[in-house]
C-alpha cells in the first residue's frame, strides 16, 4: 500500500490547512486601494505623478534588495511587496515637481534608515515611508514645499512655484493677521477640494479617491476602521471646537479634514501593521493621539501640516500601548448569567 505513496509522507503539528492569506496578498490589497488616488494624481498633476511614483518604487526595491543581500547578508525578501508599498506611500506624500534625486535619497532613508537598521520588515518602530518623507521635509524644506498648481497634464515640473497648500495659505494668512474670511477667499471650495483640486503632494489631494481606497481596505478586511476613523474624528472634533469658539481664527473642521495629508495619513500610513497597535482599544488610543498632535501642530506649530509628525510620535508609543492594552482574555471576568 505504501508503494502508492511515492514520496515520504509529511508529518507536522496541527493545523493542517491554511487560509489563502499571505503577506504579499495584503500588500497587493493596499496597492489596489491606492490606485484611485494615483489616477486622480495623474489627472491633477500629469505624468509627473507617474515618474515620481515609479522612481520611488524602483529605488525602494533596489535599496531593499541591495541592503538585504550585501549588507545584512540575508535572503532578500523584496517579493513580499512591503517595499513597493513604502515607495508608493513615500511618492504620494511628495510634491510632483520634486527633483528625482531627492526621491531616490528619500527612498534610501526610508528603506535604509527607517526599515533595515531595525532588522527589516516587522521590526521597524517607525513607518518607513514617513521617515523618508520627514527626512526630506526637514532637510530640503524649499523643494518639499514648492507645490505646483494642479493643471492636469500641462503641469510644469520645473518652474511651478504657485499653489501653496490650503493649510500653508492659512498659516501664512494668520501670520499676517488676516481674518479667516479673507484667507478663505484664496482657497477653493470644499467641493473642489474633495476631488483633489488644490495644491499638495501628489497622492494626498483627492479625498474622494482615498475614501474609495478606504472602503476597499475595510471590505477586504485588510485594516479595521479603528485607526482612520478615530484620527479623522479627533481632528474634526478638536478643530470643530476651536472653530465654534473662534471662527475668525480657525478654519472649519471640513476644511481640516479635506486638506493636507490627513486622509492619506489616517488611512494608509497610520494603519501600517508593523507600526500600529494590535488591539482595538490600543488602536483607538493611537488614533486619538495622532489626531490631537496633528491639530496642535496645525494650529499652534510652525509647520502647516502635522499629521506626519503625529504618526511618527505615536509610532514611538506603540510598544507601550501594546503592553498596556491587551485583548480581553476569555474567562478573565467571571460573569454568570
Amino acid at each position: 500500500m505504501y508503494e502508492k505513496i511515492n514520496k515520504l509522507i509529511t508529518v507536522s503539528p496541527s493545523p493542517h490547512v491554511h487560509s489563502a492569506g499571505s503577506t504579499q496578498k495584503l500588500m497587493t490589497g493596499v496597492l489596489i486601494a491606492l490606485i484611485p488616488a494615483f489616477v486622480i494624481g495623474i489627472i491633477m498633476f500629469g505624468w509627473g505623478t507617474l515618474i515620481v511614483t515609479g522612481v520611488a518604487v524602483i529605488s525602494c526595491l533596489v535599496f531593499e534588495y541591495v541592503i538585504q543581500k550585501y549588507l545584512l547578508k540575508k535572503e532578500p525578501s523584496v517579493t513580499d511587496g512591503s517595499a513597493v508599498v513604502t515607495g508608493v506611500l513615500l511618492a504620494f506624500s511628495l510634491p510632483v515637481n520634486i527633483p528625482f534625486w531627492l526621491v531616490i535619497l528619500g527612498s534610501l532613508v526610508a528603506i535604509g534608515v527607517g526599515k533595515m537598521t531595525f532588522g527589516g520588515l516587522g521590526n521597524n518602530p517607525f513607518n518607513p515611508a514617513l521617515v523618508g518623507r520627514v527626512f526630506l521635509f526637514i532637510s530640503f524644506p524649499v523643494q518639499l514645499t514648492t507645490w505646483p498648481a494642479p493643471k492636469g497634464f500641462g503641469t510644469s515640473l520645473t518652474d511651478a512655484i504657485t499653489g501653496a497648500t490650503p493649510l500653508g495659505i492659512i498659516k501664512e494668512g494668520l501670520r499676517n493677521s488676516d481674518s479667516m474670511d479673507t484667507i478663505m477667499q484664496n482657497i477653493r471650495s470644499s467641493k473642489e477640494m474633495l476631488y483633489g483640486h488644490m495644491g499638495g503632494s501628489l497622492g494626498e489631494v483627492a479625498a474622494i479617491a482615498l475614501a474609495i481606497g478606504f472602503i476597499y481596505l475595510i471590505m477586504k478586511k485588510i485594516i479595521t476602521w479603528h485607526i482612520p476613523i478615530t484620527i479623522l474624528g479627533t481632528i474634526a472634533l478638536f478643530t470643530g471646537i476651536m472653530w465654534l469658539i473662534e471662527p475668525t481664527q480657525n478654519a472649519s473642521p471640513v476644511f481640516h479634514l479635506l486638506t493636507g495629508g490627513a486622509i492619506l495619513g489616517a488611512i494608509f500610513m497610520a494603519t501600517d501593521y508593523v507600526t500600529s497597535p494590535m488591539t482595538p482599544k490600543g488602536m483607538i488610543i493611537f488614533g486619538v493621539g495622532i489626531g490631537l498632535i496633528t491639530v496642535v501642530i496645525r494650529r499652534f506649530g510652525a509647520y502647516p501640516e502635522g499629521i506626519q509628525f503625529g504618526i511618527l510620535i505615536m509610532n514611538a508609543f506603540v510598544p507601550l500601548i501594546n503592553s498596556y492594552f491587551k485583548p480581553k482574555r476569555f474567562g478573565e471576568e467571571v460573569k454568570n448569567g
Partner: peptide
C-alpha cells in the same frame, strides 16, 4: 497541500489576535 509554505517575518498585522477565541496574543 500537505507542505507548509516557508514562513516570513511577523508583520504584526494582529490577525492572530483578532481570531484567537481565547483572547490571547
Amino acid at each position: 497541500e500537505s507542505k507548509r509554505k516557508p514562513f516570513r517575518p511577523c508583520i504584526r498585522c494582529a490577525k492572530c489576535i483578532s481570531v484567537c477565541p481565547m483572547g490571547l496574543e
